[in-house]
Design a protein around this nucleic acid. Structure first.
Lengths: 227, 227
DNA sequence: TGAAACGTTACCGAATGGTTAACATAAATT
DNA sequence: AATTTATGTTAACCATTCGGTAACGTTTCA
């Protein structure tokens, strides 16, 4: 899964903290939602079903611990990772936090680099589960995301990254036509702007390696992978 | 043996940590003793002859390593399992810990569930027999984390720490591509920031020692170990 | 037929990784 | 404690390849 589709909910009563977290994480490409108290956090969580929730312990009214406990009651959020923000040295809140069902904690003051790598680490766990048995099988192709390789029958193909991503996308739903927009979005990402012929060239390369017949052009729309 | 008769000695200088460990383990039915420094730990151990000692590495005065070494001198405690509490990523303390005679380690932050199941596991091992299965076998390599040794066929390789950790990580899932991010995170730890070529250099050394063909580069993604 | 969309090729620049040596630091040895 | 050795990291440079674009060719369909 692309970062773009990874949702993070930030909960803190201080706007400044929200802002810095927000800035750092969204510039990493995550999709960010925020809430400034426990009640709103729960609403947001139910609405967006985020992958990760970063929760300040110290908040007026409903504190982080309580919010966490309530979040953990929501079945849809059972797979969500919850991590606390605590001031350094507040050991007790860590203890209570784990009891309330948190998976980790992040200590203030927040260092952007540490934050980002911590978040990556936490999400990796989630991704690993997602990816672990996510081999795509399409026709005589087996696409293994974890190993970044493609098997066609007995032979093993190693594709460059973009080609691999493109193939993986198309083959994830054989027969489905992916619009050019959609392909750009999911393989290249929204930020990057590339020229009009770029996709074609990559399709060309795939056709060369995998077989002309596997990739059909739907004029005016996009491409599809057929078995 | 009934849990009720299983004695556990907890040693940590932070009362909060003692409290949570104590709470979780005693609610599992174990008989708990505590100490807040190395010297007291030794006294307690001699007095109660516990089955398991959980020892924080970082303590003022006598640290966990030293305490462990002294505990290991006591003949009555030869059957006692000693496990360390370490912060995640403190690889070295693990090494030193094993050298000092520890049987295992538990990483902070402590998650109650993990703690309990780990403790159960340790005690089960104690009941059964000594059997270390923390060896990774990949191809003709046997990687022994406990002894920090690598065997290739009959010959025994001693690798420097980082090289060993890197190899152990890659070989833990042969075929899986580990992204550079992930490698940095898991071998170097997420606070440490090292230059961009550091991983490459270590891969180079491994390739020299283990074999060029075992380590494949996936450009733009990372490295994988292949059998 | 001609405009729009896609296909193809060749080429270039940037990104990425490889390699070596030098430097820094930690460990071991005396 | 001083010296030597081993390990870890960085810097500098090289080699490769990947991704993208331009330019032109081809198909499609009104």
């Amino acid at each position: 899964m692309k970062k773009k589709n990874t949702k993070i909910l930030l909960v803190d009563d201080e706007p400044d903290v929200l802002e810095i977290l927000s800035y750092n994480l969204s510039s990493e490409g995550y999709q960010i939602f925020t809430a400034n108290n426990g009640a709103k956090a729960i609403k947001q969580a139910q609405k967006h079903n985020p992958h990760l929730i970063i929760l300040d312990v110290m908040m007026p009214e409903m504190d982080g611990i309580e919010a966490c406990e309530q979040l953990r009651q929501i079945p849809e959020l059972s797979e969500t990772i919850i991590t606390f923000l605590t001031a350094r040295g507040e050991d007790y809140s860590q203890v209570a936090g784990f009891e309330a069902g948190a998976d980790d904690y992040i200590t203030k003051p927040i260092k952007p680099k540490v934050l980002v790598s911590k978040v990556k680490g936490l999400l990796r766990r989630f991704k690993d589960v997602e990816l672990s048995d996510s081999n795509i099988t399409a026709g005589n192709l087996v696409i293994n995301r974890e190993q970044y390789k493609v098997q066609r029958g007995k032979e093993e193909l190693i594709l460059p990254r973009k080609e691999f991503e493109l193939l993986a996308l198309l083959a994830s739903k054989p027969g489905k036509v992916f619009k050019r927009d959609e392909i750009l979005d999911r393989v290249w990402g929204n930020e990057v702007v590339v020229g009009g012929r770029t996709i074609d060239v990559h399709i060309r390369k795939l056709r060369e390696k995998i077989g002309d017949d596997k990739f059909k052009t739907v004029k005016g729309v996009g491409y599809k992978f057929v078995i």
